[in-house]
């Protein structure tokens, strides 16, 4: 991507010979890129894990196990539990707290509130850092562009002292400045791709959670009416 004009223009040489500000921009971009890739992989693992957990839990739940036993099992392994398990635990826990014979509507209302609160927290957990990926995707090209503009400005300013201006005077400066843009794009493109993918995945999970909440409400209401 960087133009090699002369033979001593290796990639490292280009970076080390850049101006201080451009080097600073490059450093920032490297850090941004590293953290963005870190979050990309973290969210990848988290969302995969959540989808698997949700699949497993729905499978177990609709098979018709004893809800009390399921609740106990989830509470005993609360740190490994998935989001849907937590929502179920919160709702069922709230439902069982009410003494038998209390107002059904009030019980169902509080159960629904408990589930919704947990759902909000879980969605917050699932969507954490996605905003960071979005920010990286939209901002890092501009940071890279800033470094490039600055580097090109400098290389053109150095032309003013030269009477016979040739492309060889400008080319190294432009090449090293363009590295900043390349780094910005390198950070931005995967971040944007990952953001879009993870946002759609979390949306899918959210709809699954919501539909499960409604279904659980129905199940609990039926159970209370019996």
């Amino acid at each position: 991507m960087s133009t090699t004009v002369t033979q001593d223009m290796s990639f490292l040489h280009l970076i080390t010979s850049a101006s201080v500000l451009v080097q600073l921009v490059m450093l920032i971009l490297i850090l941004i890129s590293l953290s963005s890739w870190w979050f990309i992989f973290r969210k990848l693992f988290v969302i995969r894990y959540e989808i698997k957990k949700t699949d497993d839990f729905e499978d177990i739940f609709w098979r018709g196990v004893d809800l009390n036993a399921l609740h106990q099992r989830i509470i005993s392994s609360r740190y490994e539990s998935g989001s849907l398990e937590r929502i179920f635990a919160a709702g069922f826990g709230e439902f069982t707290k009410h003494p038998a014979g209390s107002d059904l509507d009030a019980v169902m209302e509080s159960t629904r509130r408990a589930m919704r609160a947990t759902y909000q927290r879980e969605m917050d957990y699932l969507e954490s850092h996605l905003s960071f990926l979005a920010t990286v995707g939209s901002v890092s090209p501009y940071i890279g562009l800033f470094g490039t503009v600055w580097g090109i400005m400098n290389s053109f300013r150095s032309l003013s002292s030269v009477t016979q201006a040739t492309i060889a005077h400008v080319a190294p400066g432009i090449a090293e400045a363009l590295i900043a843009t390349a780094m910005g794009l390198f950070a931005a493109i995967p971040a944007v791709v990952a953001y879009n993918r993870y946002a759609s995945r979390t949306d899918q999970l959210a709809t699954r959670f919501e539909s499960f909440m409604e279904e659980l409400s129905n199940v609990l209401q039926r159970r209370a009416a019996e």
């Binding site: 870190w38 990309i40 973290r42 988290v46 989830i74 509470i75 927290r121």
Partner: peptide, 19 residues
Amino acid sequence: SSSVPRNFPHSEPRSLLAG
């Protein structure tokens, strides 16, 4: 005692591997 604590952290899977 059976209620789930409101905020207990998720054990995030393989965050080190991600780094």
